[in-house]
Design a protein around this nucleic acid. Structure first.
Lengths: 210, 210
DNA sequence: TCATCTGATGAAGTAACCTTCAGATTAGGA
DNA sequence: TCCTAATCTGAAGGTTACTTCATCAGATGA
């Protein structure tokens, strides 16, 4: 039978034929494109639909409202980043902590700078639509992974690992945000990166029990 | 004569009598209160006016539109923080770099945690209304001040001071943001703070030419 | 006291846009 | 081929909220 509880964030209908899957994809892509082109203030469901090459009705067949649409787009982006970070956490298992810290820092930058405009546009959205809640959840998952990674380090770390992970994450995210907001030239970006690496390395070194 | 160029962000009219100054104050206070109570999505100019105890018309006498209103409220908040940081930059002049870094870290936390709800509410706004531009300007000013402060340190710093300042700022801001978004208990907050201090101290120590 | 300027009011105009739904179109299988 | 279910369409309804302006009230100073 039908779902008993129809959440407002879930799609109304799941695509079963190929064409509808294509529609959903197109709509989500269009959402980001419109966001980039006109900004979230002027993003309208109709505009997204047109851009996606479908009608508004179609959009509303898969997304119960505008908010859910934006959330879905944001979720896609966040999950991509999540996967990337988790990949690093597997790769770096057992490495020296300083290596880990550097790898994480570089991975974060790499994934955010892969498509900086999109990142920026979506982060602007995240302060609406309970995006904050979603980001918090994602951050918690990353935190878990990083703490796990740190646990595998050969060094004896005296600090609480989750705490350490949180500080690392937040600090890295802070610098990345700064880089996103002020679109620097490539060159300056690398310098900044190096500096940040110095910071996280210094920090984790200080956390190693002597 | 009248202004030749009436910017959309400037007030239409400057208060000259006492009662109008009171209105403007009330409106700005009300803006923050409404933001806190109902969130920016449901903030309407009428609601703000009612809360301020004036009519919508009065509001529009001093703010050309909703956006300008929000910007003004944000500006007040940002400038308060700015003043606080600049104060620290004066106080810490000539101290050892590690002291400076710690003082900055603590000052940032203190000022943001003085009224966390307001901070959070206003930051949500800053992604609209060109808030980003304003934040960037503020950040640049802070950067200047911090670089100046670092210059006064007794140690010989090999790194470019503006770069160092930027990294410090962003990192500190990142952790603060995290703290704001996840409302932690007081206790955990102090622990986090200590950890962050460790990080910035380690970093600036690493920047000291040996 | 009166004239004049500043300030306040809030109903009404206007615009934008979200969302629906009844009917048209297309795909998949019997 | 034909039937049924899935999908698409987009004009129209309805809501919400921004902003204006004609008018009223209060202050200032001569």
């Amino acid at each position: 039978m039908a779902q008993l509880t129809a959440s407002l964030s879930e799609p109304r209908k799941s695509p079963v034929q190929a064409r509808s899957t294509a529609s959903v994809d197109a709509i989500l892509k269009a959402t980001v494109q419109v966001l980039l082109k006109v900004g979230k203030e002027k993003l309208t469901t109709t505009r997204v639909a047109v851009r996606a090459g479908v009608s508004v009705g179609t959009l509303y067949q898969y997304f119960p409202n505008k908010s859910a649409l934006l959330r879905a787009a944001l979720r896609l982006h966040v999950e991509e980043i999540l996967r990337e970070v988790e990949k690093i956490c597997v790769l770096e298992r057992g490495q020296p902590v300083e290596e880990m810290a550097e790898a994480l820092t570089r991975a974060f930058l790499e994934v955010k700078m892969r498509d900086p405009k999109t990142s920026r546009a979506l982060y602007a959205v995240s302060s609406d639509v309970e995006g904050a809640k979603m980001m918090a959840t994602a951050a918690a998952r990353v935190n878990e992974k990083i703490a796990g990674l740190l646990k595998s380090a050969p060094e004896r770390l005296t600090t609480d690992l989750h705490l350490m992970a949180t500080v690392l994450q937040s600090s890295i995210a802070g610098v990345k945000r700064q880089l996103l907001e002020s679109d620097m030239p490539e060159a300056r970006l690398e310098v900044m990166q190096r500096e940040q690496v110095l910071m996280v390395r210094s920090y984790v070194r200080a956390c190693v029990g002597q």
